[in-house]
Structure formats: structure tokens, C-alpha cells
């Protein structure tokens, strides 16, 4: 009988997903579609935030939303009423979204005619941070009631995002959320992250965010190059 031998494999478990993500990003670049991966905890106010964002942009951009949350809190109808096309993804109870699942969503869209696709990722701050969805930018929402200590508890998520939105800023007087302390904690993990404080409910602080998003979409559509985002920098 043959003796045992060592077969070296040395393959990253994330390699296939990374390759698929890069492919999808390239295709989105060709069709001039900005794919935005939105991550947060459940209850962070994503629905209200998304509806307002869509409302502010719908005259300038054609928008679609890919709904991945298992325990979805965004009603597809509510998103449609706000002015965007909504697609429900079938994630089969997974705790994160992969590039392959994202593709299933984008393939149902007429992406040649869509400027912005928002992926509403699964609501948790752990698993989605590990998987590149193929998005151009990764954005997370942290809401005031969740607390300013979240960067200490979920450092990975804060490291892979290009933008942090501190939401529900209208209720800050009722909580001991310290924006400066939170900002300091986040910058320690990710010095280049953009931070906006806003309220999806009242619209407070929304215009700098909308301006950033408009610029990011425009830049994606006019430049030939795919700029490396924060998640791509941390990929293994």
C-alpha cells in the first residue's frame, strides 16, 4: 500500500469569492453601475435611511436595492414607493452575502440603465465584513442607541468600510453616545474612513452624505480605473 504523503494546497478559503467579487466589480464598472454594500445591525434604521437617500437621489440617478436581510425590515414596496427597483435575494439563511449571491441579484436588473445599486446586506456586524460582495464601496450604519463602544467590539467591520454613517443622531440627547470618542475609536482602526452623522428620520446631516454619494457614483462612472476600497485592502 502507498505511504502517506503530504499534498500542499495552500489555498485561501476566501480565494474563490474574492475572484468572483473582482469579476463582478469589473462588470459593474463596464455598465457604469455603482454597487454599494450597506451593512449594519438589525434595527439601525436602514429602511428609513434608504427611503430618504432614494428620495434625495431619484431625480438624478436610477436606483435599485438588493434585499438580503434574512429578517428583512425593508419592505420591497416601501423601497419601490420611494422610487427604486427592489429585488429580494434568496440567501437561504446564510449569515453573510457572497459575490455569487450578489450576482444573482444584479443579473435580474437591467444594470446598463441603473446608476446605483444598494445591497442591503444581512444584519450583523461580523460575517458580512469577511466577504467581498464585489461592491465599489462598503458603507456601514451605526445608530446612536447601539452605543459608541461598537468599534471596540466589532473592529473588523469598522476596518473594511469606506464610510461610517452614525444614524439616529436626533435621539442623541437621550443616550450617552459620544460622537468624538466613537470617531477616535474608529479612526484608530481605519484612518481613511469617512464619517457622517445624520438622521434618516429628520434628514439632519443628510446633505454631506448625499453629496459624497453623488460624487462617488459620478467618479465611478467617468474613471476607467477601479480604485481599491477598504475591504479589498484587508482581503486575505
Amino acid at each position: 500500500m502507498d505511504a502517506f504523503r503530504v499534498i500542499e494546497i495552500k489555498q485561501s478559503v476566501y480565494a474563490d469569492n474574492n475572484a468572483e467579487a473582482d469579476r463582478l466589480r469589473g462588470e459593474m464598472k463596464n455598465s457604469k453601475t455603482f454597487l454599494l454594500n450597506l451593512m449594519s445591525s438589525p434595527g439601525s434604521g436602514k429602511t428609513t435611511f434608504l427611503k430618504r437617500t432614494i428620495g434625495e437621489l431619484k431625480n438624478d440617478l436610477k436606483i435599485a436595492v438588493l434585499e438580503a436581510d434574512i429578517d428583512s425590515d425593508v419592505d420591497a414596496r416601501a423601497v419601490a414607493e420611494a422610487g427604486a427597483e427592489a429585488v429580494q435575494l434568496h440567501t437561504g439563511g446564510m449569515c453573510h452575502l457572497t459575490a455569487g449571491m450578489t450576482r444573482q441579484g444584479t443579473e435580474t436588473l437591467d444594470s446598463e440603465n441603473i446608476d446605483l445599486v444598494v445591497i442591503e446586506n444581512i444584519g450583523n456586524l461580523i460575517c458580512p465584513a469577511e466577504f467581498d460582495t464585489g461592491a465599489a464601496a462598503n458603507v456601514m450604519i451605526l445608530s446612536v442607541p447601539e452605543g459608541d463602544d461598537k468599534p471596540l467590539k466589532y473592529p473588523n467591520m469598522f476596518s473594511v468600510c469606506d464610510v461610517l454613517l452614525i444614524n439616529k443622531i436626533d435621539v442623541q440627547p437621550y443616550f450617552d453616545f459620544n460622537v468624538d470618542l466613537c470617531t477616535e475609536r474608529v479612526r484608530k482602526l481605519n484612518p481613511d474612513i469617512r464619517i457622517f452623522t445624520l438622521s434618516g428620520k429628520t434628514g439632519e446631516g443628510f446633505s454631506p452624505w448625499i453629496q459624497w454619494l453623488k460624487n462617488a457614483v459620478r467618479e465611478w462612472q467617468v474613471s476607467d480605473r477601479i480604485q481599491e476600497n477598504a475591504l479589498m485592502k484587508t482581503r486575505h
Binding site: M1, D2, A3, F4, R5, V6, I7, E8, I9, K10, Q11, S12, V13
Partner: peptide, 8 residues
């Protein structure tokens, strides 16, 4: 990473 397998 899947490093290796010991096999025959």
C-alpha cells in the same frame, strides 16, 4: 487557508 492534506 487550506494548508495541506496528508493522504495516500
Amino acid at each position: 487557508v487550506i494548508k495541506e492534506i496528508v493522504a495516500r
